[in-house]
């Protein structure tokens, strides 16, 4: 059974005559899979994220996550956005521990098992290359470092599903490629399903097992492409003809989807 099943979902904002953001949306994501969602801007990618996490409840159709129909926020997800939204009055470590103060399963254990959780946070910091930065304040870190910390915060409560909404959009090309590798390694080492919403087609092909192309508004899934490249992938595949062919094919497909709008 897939971890996430979205079946024939319609979502309209702002009352009966409001904008139809997605219509007839169908998407299935297996446990442990890495799915990238691409499409023209305004195609309802963010709506897809909010539907999956239970921040929005669809007007028709069903969203099932981990065997349960979504009717309220599901706490098995972690989220990270383009804006790292670190709280400036907390140190990086305290920022990362924030989800544990919220999630029901952890919040009552946090005080007693503080040391255990701090160790876990420090281990995560090390994985993303921020070892020893835990007691710095977020505004003492660069944009790329904040985004790394943001990933740690999304992962600290061991979510089964990680939702990333253009997490690397605001970063320079080198930092972005570095963070692709961080995400790749996280996915390989942890038992986590990842949904990545992105505008960057190279990013989607490099990271994902499956690339989902959405149409212009109202969004629906136009096609799904299995990425054939073997894991672990190195950055050199970015320059291989087969990789570029796939990126180009996706590009023309999205151009068609835009023109159809």
């Amino acid at each position: 059974m897939p971890l996430v099943s979205i079946d024939n979902v319609d979502m309209r904002y702002g009352g009966p005559n409001g904008t139809l953001a997605v219509s007839g949306l169908d998407l299935h994501i297996d446990r442990g899979e890495f799915v990238a969602v691409v499409g023209p801007s305004g195609c309802g990618k963010s709506t897809l994220m909010k539907l999956t996490t239970g921040l929005h409840i669809p007007q028709s159709g069903t969203v099932i996550v981990a065997g349960q129909e979504v009717t309220k926020p599901v706490s098995i997800v972690g989220m990270a956005f383009q804006n790292p939204t670190m709280l400036p009055w907390r140190t990086t470590l305290e920022n990362i521990l924030l989800p544990l103060e919220i999630v029901e399963r952890h919040r009552h254990r946090l005080r007693k098992h503080k040391r255990e959780y701090v160790e876990k946070a420090e281990a995560l910091l090390e994985t993303v290359g921020l070892k020893g930065f835990g007691d710095k304040f977020p505004w003492q870190l660069s944009g790329g470092m904040q985004q790394r910390a943001n990933l740690c915060r999304a992962l600290i409560h061991e979510p089964e599903l990680l939702m990333l909404d253009e997490p690397f959009g605001a970063l320079d090309a080198f930092t972005r490629e570095e963070l692709w590798c961080v995400i790749r390694d996280l996915h390989a080492s942890q038992d986590v399903t990842i949904v990545l919403v992105t505008h960057d087609l190279r990013e989607s092909v490099f990271l994902a097992d499956k690339v989902v192309v959405m149409s212009a508004r109202p969004g629906r899934v136009v096609s799904e492409h299995v990425v054939p490249f073997e894991r672990p992938r190195q950055l050199d595949i970015l320059y291989q003809p087969a990789f570029n062919d796939m990126v180009q094919a996706l590009h023309s497909e999205i151009a068609t989807a835009r023109a159809a709008a």
Binding site: P73, V74, F81, P99, V103, E104, R153
Partner: peptide, 11 residues
């Protein structure tokens, strides 16, 4: 975004 991140965790 901050609100979304926290609400998705059940805040």
């Amino acid at each position: 975004e901050t609100e979304d991140v926290l609400r998705a965790l059940g805040a």
